[in-house]
Write a protein that binds this DNA or RNA. Structure first.
Length: 572
RNA sequence: CGGGAAGUAGCGCAGCUUGGCAGCGCGCCUGCUUUGGGAGCAGGAGGUCGCGGGUUCAAAUCCCGUCUUCCCGACCA
Protein backbone atom coordinates (compact mmCIF):
# COMPACT_ATOMS: atom_id res chain seq x y z
CA UNK A 1 0.00 0.00 0.00
CA UNK A 2 1.35 3.36 -0.98
CA UNK A 3 0.93 5.78 1.86
CA UNK A 4 0.19 8.57 -0.58
CA UNK A 5 -3.00 6.70 -1.45
CA UNK A 6 -3.93 5.41 2.01
CA UNK A 7 -6.85 7.03 3.80
CA UNK A 8 -4.95 8.10 6.87
CA UNK A 9 -4.31 11.35 8.60
CA UNK A 10 -2.04 11.33 11.59
CA UNK A 11 -2.53 13.92 14.26
CA UNK A 12 0.26 15.62 16.09
CA UNK A 13 -1.97 16.28 19.07
CA UNK A 14 -4.44 13.94 20.70
CA UNK A 15 -8.10 14.92 20.57
CA UNK A 16 -9.38 16.40 23.80
CA UNK A 17 -11.79 13.54 24.46
CA UNK A 18 -9.08 10.88 24.54
CA UNK A 19 -7.87 10.06 28.01
CA UNK A 20 -5.85 6.86 27.86
CA UNK A 21 -2.87 5.99 25.67
CA UNK A 22 -4.61 3.39 23.53
CA UNK A 23 -7.43 5.78 22.69
CA UNK A 24 -5.10 8.68 21.96
CA UNK A 25 -2.73 6.66 19.80
CA UNK A 26 -5.41 4.86 17.82
CA UNK A 27 -6.98 8.23 16.99
CA UNK A 28 -3.68 10.01 16.38
CA UNK A 29 -2.51 7.19 14.14
CA UNK A 30 -5.64 7.35 12.02
CA UNK A 31 -6.88 3.90 13.04
CA UNK A 32 -10.25 4.95 14.40
CA UNK A 33 -12.54 7.98 14.57
CA UNK A 34 -15.39 8.69 16.96
CA UNK A 35 -18.86 9.14 15.50
CA UNK A 36 -20.79 9.43 18.75
CA UNK A 37 -20.08 8.61 22.36
CA UNK A 38 -19.01 4.99 22.45
CA UNK A 39 -19.42 4.59 18.67
CA UNK A 40 -16.35 4.36 16.45
CA UNK A 41 -15.44 4.04 12.82
CA UNK A 42 -12.58 1.75 11.88
CA UNK A 43 -10.53 3.47 9.20
CA UNK A 44 -8.47 1.32 6.81
CA UNK A 45 -5.56 0.93 9.22
CA UNK A 46 -7.85 0.00 12.09
CA UNK A 47 -9.71 -2.37 9.83
CA UNK A 48 -6.49 -4.20 9.00
CA UNK A 49 -5.66 -4.69 12.67
CA UNK A 50 -9.22 -5.78 13.34
CA UNK A 51 -9.01 -8.33 10.54
CA UNK A 52 -5.79 -9.69 11.94
CA UNK A 53 -7.30 -10.16 15.40
CA UNK A 54 -10.32 -11.83 13.79
CA UNK A 55 -8.06 -14.05 11.72
CA UNK A 56 -6.33 -15.34 14.85
CA UNK A 57 -9.68 -16.01 16.49
CA UNK A 58 -10.97 -17.84 13.42
CA UNK A 59 -7.85 -19.93 13.09
CA UNK A 60 -7.91 -21.08 16.70
CA UNK A 61 -11.65 -21.74 16.84
CA UNK A 62 -11.68 -23.52 13.49
CA UNK A 63 -8.75 -25.59 14.67
CA UNK A 64 -10.84 -26.58 17.70
CA UNK A 65 -13.63 -27.86 15.50
CA UNK A 66 -15.90 -24.84 15.81
CA UNK A 67 -17.95 -23.69 12.82
CA UNK A 68 -18.49 -20.07 11.88
CA UNK A 69 -21.92 -18.69 11.10
CA UNK A 70 -23.47 -15.25 11.21
CA UNK A 71 -26.54 -14.54 13.30
CA UNK A 72 -28.69 -11.46 12.73
CA UNK A 73 -28.03 -8.32 14.71
CA UNK A 74 -31.74 -7.45 14.50
CA UNK A 75 -33.75 -9.78 16.70
CA UNK A 76 -37.54 -9.89 17.14
CA UNK A 77 -38.35 -8.85 20.69
CA UNK A 78 -40.66 -11.87 20.98
CA UNK A 79 -37.59 -14.09 21.29
CA UNK A 80 -36.59 -12.23 24.39
CA UNK A 81 -40.06 -12.45 25.81
CA UNK A 82 -39.87 -16.22 25.48
CA UNK A 83 -36.58 -16.41 27.37
CA UNK A 84 -37.85 -13.94 29.93
CA UNK A 85 -34.92 -11.62 29.44
CA UNK A 86 -37.03 -8.87 27.87
CA UNK A 87 -37.99 -8.03 31.44
CA UNK A 88 -34.38 -7.01 32.03
CA UNK A 89 -34.36 -4.45 29.22
CA UNK A 90 -33.61 -0.98 30.37
CA UNK A 91 -32.14 -2.32 33.59
CA UNK A 92 -28.49 -1.90 34.32
CA UNK A 93 -28.04 -5.64 33.87
CA UNK A 94 -29.19 -5.65 30.25
CA UNK A 95 -29.12 -2.20 28.64
CA UNK A 96 -30.53 -3.34 25.33
CA UNK A 97 -31.62 -0.98 22.59
CA UNK A 98 -34.72 -1.60 20.54
CA UNK A 99 -35.92 -0.29 17.23
CA UNK A 100 -39.50 -0.08 16.01
CA UNK A 101 -40.03 -1.18 12.44
CA UNK A 102 -42.89 -2.38 10.28
CA UNK A 103 -42.23 -5.97 11.25
CA UNK A 104 -42.65 -5.13 14.91
CA UNK A 105 -40.16 -4.24 17.58
CA UNK A 106 -36.62 -5.48 17.15
CA UNK A 107 -33.82 -5.73 19.63
CA UNK A 108 -30.40 -4.58 18.52
CA UNK A 109 -28.68 -7.73 19.70
CA UNK A 110 -26.72 -7.20 22.90
CA UNK A 111 -25.94 -10.92 22.93
CA UNK A 112 -27.20 -13.94 21.00
CA UNK A 113 -28.16 -16.82 23.29
CA UNK A 114 -31.83 -16.74 22.27
CA UNK A 115 -31.14 -16.49 18.55
CA UNK A 116 -28.53 -19.20 18.43
CA UNK A 117 -30.70 -21.58 20.44
CA UNK A 118 -33.71 -21.26 18.16
CA UNK A 119 -31.44 -21.34 15.10
CA UNK A 120 -29.39 -24.41 15.91
CA UNK A 121 -32.08 -26.27 17.81
CA UNK A 122 -34.35 -27.20 14.88
CA UNK A 123 -31.32 -28.25 12.78
CA UNK A 124 -30.31 -30.87 15.33
CA UNK A 125 -32.61 -33.85 15.85
CA UNK A 126 -30.22 -36.50 17.10
CA UNK A 127 -27.42 -36.98 19.58
CA UNK A 128 -25.44 -38.18 16.55
CA UNK A 129 -25.09 -34.52 15.46
CA UNK A 130 -23.53 -33.55 18.77
CA UNK A 131 -21.28 -32.15 20.09
CA UNK A 132 -21.56 -28.97 18.06
CA UNK A 133 -19.94 -25.61 18.59
CA UNK A 134 -20.73 -22.62 16.40
CA UNK A 135 -19.34 -19.13 16.57
CA UNK A 136 -19.74 -15.76 14.96
CA UNK A 137 -18.00 -12.42 14.82
CA UNK A 138 -20.71 -9.82 15.02
CA UNK A 139 -21.51 -6.27 15.98
CA UNK A 140 -23.36 -6.03 19.28
CA UNK A 141 -25.17 -3.15 20.87
CA UNK A 142 -25.33 -2.16 24.50
CA UNK A 143 -26.64 1.13 25.77
CA UNK A 144 -23.73 1.57 28.14
CA UNK A 145 -24.40 3.99 30.94
CA UNK A 146 -20.94 5.33 30.47
CA UNK A 147 -18.84 4.59 27.39
CA UNK A 148 -15.20 5.08 28.22
CA UNK A 149 -11.61 4.97 27.06
CA UNK A 150 -12.11 4.74 23.32
CA UNK A 151 -12.58 1.16 22.19
CA UNK A 152 -12.38 -0.22 25.70
CA UNK A 153 -16.01 0.37 26.58
CA UNK A 154 -18.36 1.16 23.73
CA UNK A 155 -22.04 1.06 22.87
CA UNK A 156 -21.43 -0.65 19.56
CA UNK A 157 -18.79 -3.34 19.75
CA UNK A 158 -17.43 -6.20 17.72
CA UNK A 159 -17.53 -9.48 19.56
CA UNK A 160 -16.62 -13.03 18.78
CA UNK A 161 -18.99 -15.40 20.52
CA UNK A 162 -19.19 -19.16 20.44
CA UNK A 163 -22.00 -21.45 21.56
CA UNK A 164 -21.65 -25.14 22.29
CA UNK A 165 -24.43 -27.73 22.23
CA UNK A 166 -24.01 -31.05 23.97
CA UNK A 167 -25.94 -34.13 24.99
CA UNK A 168 -25.43 -33.63 28.72
CA UNK A 169 -23.54 -31.70 31.33
CA UNK A 170 -20.40 -33.83 31.21
CA UNK A 171 -20.12 -33.46 27.44
CA UNK A 172 -20.77 -29.75 27.78
CA UNK A 173 -17.90 -29.40 30.21
CA UNK A 174 -15.65 -31.12 27.70
CA UNK A 175 -16.67 -28.68 24.98
CA UNK A 176 -16.22 -25.86 27.45
CA UNK A 177 -12.66 -26.94 28.09
CA UNK A 178 -11.95 -27.11 24.35
CA UNK A 179 -13.06 -23.54 23.69
CA UNK A 180 -11.47 -22.38 26.93
CA UNK A 181 -8.12 -23.70 25.70
CA UNK A 182 -8.64 -22.11 22.28
CA UNK A 183 -9.22 -18.77 24.00
CA UNK A 184 -5.98 -19.18 25.92
CA UNK A 185 -4.14 -19.77 22.64
CA UNK A 186 -5.74 -16.68 21.11
CA UNK A 187 -4.54 -14.47 23.94
CA UNK A 188 -1.12 -16.04 23.70
CA UNK A 189 -0.87 -15.18 20.00
CA UNK A 190 -2.05 -11.64 20.74
CA UNK A 191 0.83 -11.29 23.16
CA UNK A 192 -1.53 -10.78 26.08
CA UNK A 193 -1.19 -12.35 29.49
CA UNK A 194 -4.77 -13.33 30.15
CA UNK A 195 -5.65 -14.96 33.44
CA UNK A 196 -8.85 -17.02 33.64
CA UNK A 197 -10.67 -16.15 36.83
CA UNK A 198 -13.84 -17.34 38.50
CA UNK A 199 -16.53 -14.74 37.97
CA UNK A 200 -20.10 -13.71 38.60
CA UNK A 201 -22.48 -14.59 35.78
CA UNK A 202 -24.71 -11.51 35.63
CA UNK A 203 -27.51 -11.39 33.07
CA UNK A 204 -26.18 -14.33 31.02
CA UNK A 205 -26.71 -16.84 33.81
CA UNK A 206 -25.42 -20.34 34.36
CA UNK A 207 -23.39 -22.04 37.04
CA UNK A 208 -19.70 -22.05 36.26
CA UNK A 209 -18.16 -19.16 34.41
CA UNK A 210 -14.77 -17.60 33.85
CA UNK A 211 -13.52 -14.22 32.85
CA UNK A 212 -10.24 -13.84 30.97
CA UNK A 213 -8.55 -10.92 32.62
CA UNK A 214 -5.66 -8.96 31.16
CA UNK A 215 -3.76 -7.05 33.84
CA UNK A 216 -3.75 -3.39 32.86
CA UNK A 217 -3.51 0.01 34.48
CA UNK A 218 -6.62 1.12 32.59
CA UNK A 219 -8.69 -1.87 33.66
CA UNK A 220 -12.08 -1.34 35.23
CA UNK A 221 -12.12 -4.67 37.02
CA UNK A 222 -10.09 -6.21 39.80
CA UNK A 223 -9.43 -9.83 40.41
CA UNK A 224 -8.13 -11.59 43.47
CA UNK A 225 -4.99 -13.56 42.88
CA UNK A 226 -3.19 -15.97 45.20
CA UNK A 227 0.52 -16.17 44.42
CA UNK A 228 0.86 -19.33 46.51
CA UNK A 229 -1.73 -21.64 44.95
CA UNK A 230 -2.96 -19.84 41.83
CA UNK A 231 -6.50 -19.15 43.02
CA UNK A 232 -7.95 -16.35 40.90
CA UNK A 233 -11.41 -14.80 41.02
CA UNK A 234 -13.11 -11.54 40.16
CA UNK A 235 -13.64 -9.48 43.31
CA UNK A 236 -17.35 -9.73 42.56
CA UNK A 237 -17.11 -13.50 42.99
CA UNK A 238 -14.05 -13.98 45.20
CA UNK A 239 -14.35 -15.69 48.55
CA UNK A 240 -12.23 -15.00 51.57
CA UNK A 241 -10.69 -17.90 53.38
CA UNK A 242 -10.96 -18.37 57.12
CA UNK A 243 -12.44 -20.56 59.78
CA UNK A 244 -15.43 -20.25 62.08
CA UNK A 245 -14.96 -18.47 65.34
CA UNK A 246 -15.52 -21.35 67.75
CA UNK A 247 -11.94 -21.31 68.94
CA UNK A 248 -11.98 -17.64 69.70
CA UNK A 249 -15.38 -17.57 71.34
CA UNK A 250 -15.36 -17.60 75.09
CA UNK A 251 -12.04 -15.81 75.15
CA UNK A 252 -13.99 -12.73 76.04
CA UNK A 253 -12.81 -10.37 78.66
CA UNK A 254 -15.74 -10.37 81.04
CA UNK A 255 -14.78 -7.03 82.49
CA UNK A 256 -15.81 -5.07 79.44
CA UNK A 257 -19.30 -3.81 80.16
CA UNK A 258 -22.00 -3.41 77.56
CA UNK A 259 -22.95 0.25 77.45
CA UNK A 260 -25.90 1.64 75.55
CA UNK A 261 -25.49 5.01 73.85
CA UNK A 262 -28.08 7.48 72.60
CA UNK A 263 -27.12 7.93 68.95
CA UNK A 264 -29.98 9.71 67.19
CA UNK A 265 -29.75 10.28 63.44
CA UNK A 266 -26.71 8.02 63.11
CA UNK A 267 -27.80 4.96 61.16
CA UNK A 268 -24.62 4.44 59.11
CA UNK A 269 -21.14 3.18 59.91
CA UNK A 270 -19.57 6.57 59.21
CA UNK A 271 -22.15 8.27 61.42
CA UNK A 272 -21.37 6.00 64.33
CA UNK A 273 -17.61 6.30 63.92
CA UNK A 274 -18.06 10.06 64.05
CA UNK A 275 -20.08 9.73 67.24
CA UNK A 276 -17.32 7.76 68.96
CA UNK A 277 -14.52 9.71 67.32
CA UNK A 278 -13.22 11.00 70.63
CA UNK A 279 -12.54 7.46 71.86
CA UNK A 280 -10.21 6.53 69.02
CA UNK A 281 -12.82 4.27 67.47
CA UNK A 282 -12.44 3.29 63.80
CA UNK A 283 -14.80 1.54 61.44
CA UNK A 284 -12.96 -1.72 62.17
CA UNK A 285 -14.35 -1.62 65.74
CA UNK A 286 -17.90 -1.63 64.46
CA UNK A 287 -20.02 -4.60 63.59
CA UNK A 288 -21.96 -4.04 60.39
CA UNK A 289 -25.29 -5.87 60.70
CA UNK A 290 -27.30 -6.42 57.52
CA UNK A 291 -30.80 -7.83 57.42
CA UNK A 292 -30.98 -10.20 54.44
CA UNK A 293 -32.92 -13.10 53.01
CA UNK A 294 -30.70 -16.03 52.11
CA UNK A 295 -31.06 -18.08 48.94
CA UNK A 296 -33.90 -20.06 50.56
CA UNK A 297 -35.67 -16.86 51.58
CA UNK A 298 -34.98 -17.22 55.30
CA UNK A 299 -34.60 -13.95 57.21
CA UNK A 300 -31.05 -13.71 58.45
CA UNK A 301 -28.57 -11.28 59.89
CA UNK A 302 -25.14 -11.02 58.30
CA UNK A 303 -22.33 -9.60 60.43
CA UNK A 304 -19.12 -8.15 59.13
CA UNK A 305 -16.47 -5.73 60.30
CA UNK A 306 -17.50 -2.11 59.77
CA UNK A 307 -14.51 -1.29 57.60
CA UNK A 308 -15.34 -3.91 54.97
CA UNK A 309 -17.56 -3.85 51.91
CA UNK A 310 -20.28 -6.48 51.92
CA UNK A 311 -20.60 -9.09 49.20
CA UNK A 312 -23.63 -11.36 49.42
CA UNK A 313 -23.66 -14.80 47.81
CA UNK A 314 -25.79 -15.32 44.69
CA UNK A 315 -29.47 -15.53 45.52
CA UNK A 316 -29.22 -13.53 48.72
CA UNK A 317 -30.74 -10.08 49.00
CA UNK A 318 -31.06 -7.21 51.39
CA UNK A 319 -34.35 -6.43 53.14
CA UNK A 320 -36.55 -3.91 51.38
CA UNK A 321 -37.58 -1.05 53.64
CA UNK A 322 -41.13 -2.29 54.14
CA UNK A 323 -39.95 -5.77 55.10
CA UNK A 324 -38.54 -4.53 58.39
CA UNK A 325 -42.12 -4.18 59.63
CA UNK A 326 -42.48 -7.97 59.87
CA UNK A 327 -39.40 -8.37 62.06
CA UNK A 328 -39.59 -6.24 65.19
CA UNK A 329 -36.12 -7.24 66.36
CA UNK A 330 -34.55 -5.63 63.32
CA UNK A 331 -34.57 -1.84 63.61
CA UNK A 332 -33.24 -0.38 60.39
CA UNK A 333 -30.11 1.62 61.03
CA UNK A 334 -29.74 0.28 64.56
CA UNK A 335 -29.53 -3.48 64.06
CA UNK A 336 -27.38 -5.59 66.35
CA UNK A 337 -26.86 -9.36 66.72
CA UNK A 338 -27.82 -9.74 70.38
CA UNK A 339 -30.77 -12.04 70.94
CA UNK A 340 -31.79 -12.32 67.30
CA UNK A 341 -32.09 -16.11 67.49
CA UNK A 342 -35.04 -15.72 69.89
CA UNK A 343 -36.88 -13.89 67.11
CA UNK A 344 -36.20 -16.58 64.52
CA UNK A 345 -33.38 -14.73 62.86
CA UNK A 346 -30.28 -16.72 61.96
CA UNK A 347 -27.04 -14.90 62.71
CA UNK A 348 -24.35 -15.48 60.11
CA UNK A 349 -20.94 -13.88 60.39
CA UNK A 350 -18.10 -13.19 58.07
CA UNK A 351 -14.83 -14.91 58.97
CA UNK A 352 -13.41 -11.48 59.76
CA UNK A 353 -15.67 -11.19 62.80
CA UNK A 354 -13.98 -14.10 64.52
CA UNK A 355 -12.36 -12.03 67.22
CA UNK A 356 -14.20 -11.60 70.52
CA UNK A 357 -14.54 -7.86 70.45
CA UNK A 358 -15.44 -5.60 72.06
CA UNK A 359 -17.67 -4.45 69.24
CA UNK A 360 -19.81 -1.40 68.73
CA UNK A 361 -23.10 -2.35 67.12
CA UNK A 362 -26.78 -1.52 66.98
CA UNK A 363 -28.93 -1.93 70.07
CA UNK A 364 -32.04 -3.07 68.18
CA UNK A 365 -33.78 0.04 69.48
CA UNK A 366 -34.37 3.23 67.54
CA UNK A 367 -31.51 5.73 67.95
CA UNK A 368 -29.43 3.42 70.18
CA UNK A 369 -26.08 1.71 69.73
CA UNK A 370 -24.12 -0.38 72.22
CA UNK A 371 -20.40 -0.63 72.85
CA UNK A 372 -18.56 -3.48 74.55
CA UNK A 373 -20.48 -6.28 72.84
CA UNK A 374 -18.50 -9.52 73.02
CA UNK A 375 -18.81 -12.52 70.76
CA UNK A 376 -19.89 -15.51 72.87
CA UNK A 377 -21.01 -13.47 75.86
CA UNK A 378 -23.40 -10.97 74.30
CA UNK A 379 -24.21 -12.56 70.98
CA UNK A 380 -23.87 -15.89 69.25
CA UNK A 381 -23.09 -16.78 65.66
CA UNK A 382 -24.95 -19.67 64.03
CA UNK A 383 -22.87 -19.91 60.87
CA UNK A 384 -19.64 -18.56 59.43
CA UNK A 385 -18.82 -17.68 55.88
CA UNK A 386 -17.31 -15.15 53.48
CA UNK A 387 -19.49 -12.06 53.20
CA UNK A 388 -17.02 -9.31 52.35
CA UNK A 389 -15.43 -8.11 49.16
CA UNK A 390 -11.98 -9.63 49.25
CA UNK A 391 -9.06 -7.25 49.46
CA UNK A 392 -5.28 -7.37 49.52
CA UNK A 393 -3.94 -9.43 52.40
CA UNK A 394 -7.07 -11.49 53.02
CA UNK A 395 -6.48 -15.23 53.33
CA UNK A 396 -6.90 -17.33 50.21
CA UNK A 397 -9.96 -19.61 50.40
CA UNK A 398 -7.91 -22.53 49.07
CA UNK A 399 -4.57 -22.31 50.85
CA UNK A 400 -4.93 -19.52 53.41
CA UNK A 401 -1.99 -17.49 52.14
CA UNK A 402 -2.56 -13.74 51.69
CA UNK A 403 -4.03 -12.81 48.30
CA UNK A 404 -3.39 -9.77 46.12
CA UNK A 405 -5.68 -7.63 44.00
CA UNK A 406 -4.91 -7.15 40.29
CA UNK A 407 -6.39 -4.37 38.20
CA UNK A 408 -7.40 -5.73 34.83
CA UNK A 409 -9.52 -5.58 31.70
CA UNK A 410 -12.13 -8.25 31.08
CA UNK A 411 -11.22 -9.49 27.61
CA UNK A 412 -13.50 -12.52 27.44
CA UNK A 413 -16.16 -14.24 29.47
CA UNK A 414 -17.25 -17.85 29.18
CA UNK A 415 -20.31 -19.43 30.76
CA UNK A 416 -21.51 -22.97 31.39
CA UNK A 417 -25.16 -22.29 30.73
CA UNK A 418 -26.51 -25.80 31.16
CA UNK A 419 -30.22 -25.85 30.36
CA UNK A 420 -30.98 -22.18 31.04
CA UNK A 421 -31.89 -21.45 27.42
CA UNK A 422 -32.61 -24.89 26.03
CA UNK A 423 -35.40 -25.45 28.54
CA UNK A 424 -37.25 -22.28 27.56
CA UNK A 425 -36.49 -21.79 23.87
CA UNK A 426 -38.53 -23.96 21.48
CA UNK A 427 -36.82 -26.58 19.34
CA UNK A 428 -34.07 -27.43 21.81
CA UNK A 429 -34.97 -31.09 21.99
CA UNK A 430 -33.29 -34.04 20.29
CA UNK A 431 -33.38 -37.82 20.48
CA UNK A 432 -30.79 -39.20 22.85
CA UNK A 433 -28.76 -42.38 22.43
CA UNK A 434 -31.24 -44.39 24.49
CA UNK A 435 -34.15 -43.20 22.35
CA UNK A 436 -35.54 -40.80 24.92
CA UNK A 437 -36.04 -37.10 24.31
CA UNK A 438 -33.45 -34.72 25.74
CA UNK A 439 -32.52 -31.05 25.54
CA UNK A 440 -29.12 -29.47 24.94
CA UNK A 441 -26.65 -28.66 27.62
CA UNK A 442 -25.15 -25.40 26.44
CA UNK A 443 -22.24 -23.09 27.06
CA UNK A 444 -21.36 -19.73 25.57
CA UNK A 445 -18.11 -17.90 25.07
CA UNK A 446 -17.78 -14.18 24.38
CA UNK A 447 -14.65 -12.29 23.44
CA UNK A 448 -14.50 -8.54 22.89
CA UNK A 449 -12.73 -8.18 19.56
CA UNK A 450 -12.80 -4.40 19.28
CA UNK A 451 -11.92 -4.18 22.96
CA UNK A 452 -8.86 -6.34 22.20
CA UNK A 453 -7.57 -3.61 19.90
CA UNK A 454 -7.68 -1.24 22.83
CA UNK A 455 -6.02 -3.74 25.15
CA UNK A 456 -3.27 -4.75 22.74
CA UNK A 457 -2.43 -1.14 21.92
CA UNK A 458 -2.62 -0.18 25.56
CA UNK A 459 -0.09 -2.84 26.46
CA UNK A 460 2.13 -2.23 23.42
CA UNK A 461 3.14 1.39 23.04
CA UNK A 462 5.80 3.86 24.06
CA UNK A 463 5.87 7.64 24.19
CA UNK A 464 6.30 7.87 20.41
CA UNK A 465 3.45 5.65 19.39
CA UNK A 466 2.11 2.16 18.94
CA UNK A 467 4.27 -0.96 18.88
CA UNK A 468 2.13 -3.71 17.34
CA UNK A 469 2.86 -7.38 17.90
CA UNK A 470 3.71 -8.94 14.53
CA UNK A 471 0.51 -10.98 14.25
CA UNK A 472 -1.85 -8.03 14.49
CA UNK A 473 0.17 -5.21 12.92
CA UNK A 474 -1.63 -3.52 10.01
CA UNK A 475 1.45 -4.12 7.86
CA UNK A 476 4.56 -6.19 8.32
CA UNK A 477 6.97 -3.63 6.94
CA UNK A 478 6.93 0.15 6.89
CA UNK A 479 9.08 1.18 3.95
CA UNK A 480 10.14 4.84 3.83
CA UNK A 481 11.91 6.48 0.94
CA UNK A 482 13.97 9.49 1.98
CA UNK A 483 14.53 12.27 -0.52
CA UNK A 484 13.06 10.33 -3.40
CA UNK A 485 11.85 13.57 -4.95
CA UNK A 486 15.32 14.87 -5.64
CA UNK A 487 17.33 11.67 -6.00
CA UNK A 488 15.88 9.49 -8.78
CA UNK A 489 18.01 6.56 -7.73
CA UNK A 490 16.32 6.51 -4.32
CA UNK A 491 12.87 6.56 -5.87
CA UNK A 492 13.80 3.76 -8.22
CA UNK A 493 15.37 1.64 -5.52
CA UNK A 494 12.46 2.17 -3.11
CA UNK A 495 9.91 1.37 -5.80
CA UNK A 496 11.82 -1.76 -6.62
CA UNK A 497 12.04 -2.90 -3.00
CA UNK A 498 8.34 -2.25 -2.61
CA UNK A 499 7.47 -4.22 -5.73
CA UNK A 500 9.65 -7.16 -4.86
CA UNK A 501 8.42 -7.42 -1.28
CA UNK A 502 4.83 -7.15 -2.39
CA UNK A 503 5.29 -9.85 -4.99
CA UNK A 504 6.89 -12.01 -2.30
CA UNK A 505 3.71 -11.68 -0.25
CA UNK A 506 4.99 -9.24 2.36
CA UNK A 507 2.47 -6.64 3.47
CA UNK A 508 4.25 -3.35 2.98
CA UNK A 509 3.21 0.17 3.82
CA UNK A 510 5.28 2.28 1.45
CA UNK A 511 5.75 5.88 2.54
CA UNK A 512 6.20 7.42 -0.89
CA UNK A 513 4.97 10.82 0.19
CA UNK A 514 6.93 13.94 -0.63
CA UNK A 515 7.40 15.03 2.96
CA UNK A 516 10.45 15.66 5.08
CA UNK A 517 12.31 12.77 6.72
CA UNK A 518 11.30 13.85 10.21
CA UNK A 519 7.63 13.50 9.32
CA UNK A 520 8.21 10.01 7.93
CA UNK A 521 10.12 8.92 11.02
CA UNK A 522 7.49 10.31 13.36
CA UNK A 523 4.62 8.71 11.45
CA UNK A 524 6.41 5.35 11.29
CA UNK A 525 6.90 5.46 15.07
CA UNK A 526 3.29 6.49 15.64
CA UNK A 527 1.77 3.83 13.38
CA UNK A 528 3.84 1.14 15.05
CA UNK A 529 4.54 -1.33 12.23
CA UNK A 530 7.09 -3.83 13.61
CA UNK A 531 9.78 -3.31 10.95
CA UNK A 532 10.80 -0.02 9.43
CA UNK A 533 12.96 0.01 6.34
CA UNK A 534 14.65 3.09 4.98
CA UNK A 535 15.77 3.65 1.46
CA UNK A 536 17.91 6.77 1.25
CA UNK A 537 20.93 8.19 -0.49
CA UNK A 538 23.11 7.32 2.49
CA UNK A 539 22.28 3.66 2.49
CA UNK A 540 22.24 3.35 -1.28
CA UNK A 541 25.78 4.61 -1.49
CA UNK A 542 26.70 1.48 0.48
CA UNK A 543 24.25 -0.67 -1.46
CA UNK A 544 21.97 -1.27 1.51
CA UNK A 545 18.58 -0.45 2.94
CA UNK A 546 18.35 0.19 6.64
CA UNK A 547 16.27 -2.19 8.77
CA UNK A 548 15.01 -1.15 12.20
CA UNK A 549 12.88 -2.87 14.82
CA UNK A 550 10.11 -0.67 16.18
CA UNK A 551 10.04 -2.59 19.43
CA UNK A 552 13.73 -2.70 20.29
CA UNK A 553 15.25 0.03 18.15
CA UNK A 554 17.77 -2.48 16.83
CA UNK A 555 19.18 -1.48 13.45
CA UNK A 556 20.76 -3.50 10.65
CA UNK A 557 21.87 -2.88 7.10
CA UNK A 558 20.40 -5.23 4.53
CA UNK A 559 22.08 -5.56 1.12
CA UNK A 560 19.65 -4.37 -1.53
CA UNK A 561 19.39 -7.73 -3.25
CA UNK A 562 18.94 -9.66 0.00
CA UNK A 563 15.93 -7.72 1.22
CA UNK A 564 13.33 -10.12 -0.06
CA UNK A 565 15.11 -13.18 1.28
CA UNK A 566 15.36 -11.53 4.70
CA UNK A 567 11.78 -10.41 4.93
CA UNK A 568 9.68 -12.90 3.02
CA UNK A 569 7.71 -15.21 5.22
CA UNK A 570 7.45 -12.78 8.13
CA UNK A 571 3.89 -13.92 8.59
CA UNK A 572 3.84 -17.31 6.95
C1' C B 1 -28.92 8.25 37.43
C1' G B 2 -25.82 11.80 41.00
C1' G B 3 -21.43 15.31 41.02
C1' G B 4 -17.85 18.26 37.97
C1' A B 5 -15.92 20.40 33.40
C1' A B 6 -16.25 21.74 28.34
C1' G B 7 -18.57 22.94 23.28
C1' U B 8 -15.18 28.89 18.71
C1' A B 9 -12.03 26.25 11.13
C1' G B 10 -10.21 19.07 10.13
C1' C B 11 -7.15 18.76 15.27
C1' G B 12 -5.32 21.54 19.70
C1' C B 13 -6.65 26.15 21.84
C1' A B 14 -7.14 31.88 22.96
C1' G B 15 -10.99 35.54 22.94
C1' C B 16 -16.07 35.72 27.23
C1' U B 17 -14.53 38.76 33.35
C1' U B 18 -15.66 44.62 31.26
C1' G B 19 -20.93 43.32 24.66
C1' G B 20 -18.38 46.77 19.41
C1' C B 21 -14.45 43.85 12.34
C1' A B 22 -13.74 36.00 14.86
C1' G B 23 -8.15 34.99 16.17
C1' C B 24 -3.44 31.76 17.15
C1' G B 25 -0.63 26.98 16.45
C1' C B 26 -0.87 22.44 13.65
C1' G B 27 -3.11 20.57 9.29
C1' C B 28 -4.94 21.86 4.01
C1' C B 29 -4.05 24.56 -1.24
C1' U B 30 -0.33 27.44 -4.72
C1' G B 31 4.74 28.98 -5.68
C1' C B 32 9.93 29.15 -4.52
C1' U B 33 13.76 27.38 -1.39
C1' U B 34 14.90 23.16 1.67
C1' U B 35 15.50 17.73 2.78
C1' G B 36 18.61 11.46 7.66
C1' G B 37 14.01 12.94 13.41
C1' G B 38 7.51 16.61 12.98
C1' A B 39 11.65 22.66 7.49
C1' G B 40 11.62 28.23 5.76
C1' C B 41 9.50 32.31 3.11
C1' A B 42 5.40 34.40 0.36
C1' G B 43 0.42 34.00 -0.97
C1' G B 44 -4.43 31.48 -0.18
C1' A B 45 -8.89 28.52 1.20
C1' G B 46 -11.69 27.13 5.28
C1' G B 47 -16.55 29.51 10.63
C1' U B 48 -24.55 29.17 11.62
C1' C B 49 -18.69 30.76 17.79
C1' G B 50 -23.39 23.33 19.37
C1' C B 51 -28.77 24.62 18.86
C1' G B 52 -33.26 27.64 20.27
C1' G B 53 -35.13 31.81 22.63
C1' G B 54 -34.40 36.46 25.42
C1' U B 55 -31.90 41.35 26.78
C1' U B 56 -29.49 45.24 23.72
C1' C B 57 -28.44 50.14 18.75
C1' A B 58 -25.15 45.86 18.80
C1' A B 59 -24.18 39.05 21.55
C1' A B 60 -18.82 34.15 20.67
C1' U B 61 -19.24 37.44 25.10
C1' C B 62 -24.97 38.76 29.39
C1' C B 63 -29.78 35.75 30.80
C1' C B 64 -33.08 31.27 30.15
C1' G B 65 -33.73 26.63 27.92
C1' U B 66 -31.90 22.54 25.26
C1' C B 67 -28.49 19.13 22.88
C1' U B 68 -23.66 17.06 22.77
C1' U B 69 -18.88 15.52 24.78
C1' C B 70 -15.36 14.26 28.57
C1' C B 71 -14.02 13.20 33.82
C1' C B 72 -15.44 11.15 38.97
C1' G B 73 -19.15 8.07 41.17
C1' A B 74 -23.22 4.37 40.68
C1' C B 75 -23.72 0.25 37.28
C1' C B 76 -21.72 -3.40 33.90
C1' A B 77 -22.62 -9.49 29.58
Amino acid sequence: MRMSRLLVRTLREAPADAEVASHQLLVRGGYIRRLASGVYTFLPLGMRVLHNVERIIREELDRSGCQELLLPALQPIELWQVSGRAALFGSDALPAMTVDARGGTFVLGPTHEEVVTVTVGPEVDSYRQLPLTVYQIQVKFRDEARPRFGLLRTRELIMADAYSFDVDKEAMQESYRTVFDAYLRIFDRLGLEATPVEAASGAIGGDVNHEFMVPSAVGEDHFVSCPACGYAANVEAAIRGGAGGAATEGGADGEVPVVEHHTPERPGIDDVVAFFAGDGVTAADLLKSMAVFDAEGRPSLVLLAGDREARLPDGWRLFEDDEFADHSSLVKGYIGPTGQQEHGIRVIADFGVARPGPWITGANRQDRHVSGALLGRDFAVDEWGSFVEVTTGDPCPRCGEPVGLVRSVEAAHTFQLGYKYSEVMPGSNFVAEDGSEAIFSMACYGMGVSRLLAVVSEENHDDRGLVWPAEVAPFQVHLAALGAGRVPEVAMAADQVYERLTVAGVEVLYDDRDVSPGVKFADADLLGVPVRMLVGAKGLSRGVVEWRSRATGEERDLPLDAVVEELAGLRS
